[in-house]
Design a protein around this nucleic acid. Structure first.
Length: 117
DNA sequence: AATGTGACATACC
DNA sequence: TGGTATGCCACAT
């Protein structure tokens, strides 16, 4: 009985996962997309971040980066350095718009949330 | 209402 | 080995 609330089903799931990212951890668009069951919908995740500021809840979009660990969306924040500042504020080292030890800080929802795959 | 776009990722050549 | 092309779904204009 979807009562219209599921129109943003994908987005809400994305926001939910992003909100579940622990402090000081990061993830990738592809990881989220794969966790949602649509590994090829990674763009939607990025798009979701784009409209995250329109979402009623706060979404730590700064904890989501591309597969290369590059702060692809830094330019979309208030200032081009806001994203880096937020990450550094969480103890994540960022150099040249790239996350150092990206793999170490990587938080895979499909693994951490123990998906049944 | 329809078209284009988008903070990616993967596959193929 | 890198570059090109495509897929995906919802939002914005």
């Amino acid at each position: 009985m979807r009562k219209g609330s599921d129109k943003t089903d994908f987005f809400e799931q994305v926001f939910s996962v992003v909100c579940l990212i622990p402090f000081g951890r990061i993830t990738t668009y592809g990881a989220i997309a794969r966790y949602l069951g649509s590994p090829q919908s990674s763009r939607l995740v990025g798009w979701a971040m784009n409209v995250s500021h329109t979402y009623k809840e706060f979404v730590p979009a700064h904890r989501v980066v591309n597969r290369n660990g590059l702060l692809s969306g830094k330019h979309h924040f208030d200032t081009p350095i806001t994203m880096q500042q937020l990450l550094e504020n969480e103890g994540i080292e960022v150099e040249d718009d790239r996350i150092i030890n990206f793999r170490k800080h990587f938080w895979d929802p499909g693994v951490e949330l123990d998906r049944d795959f």
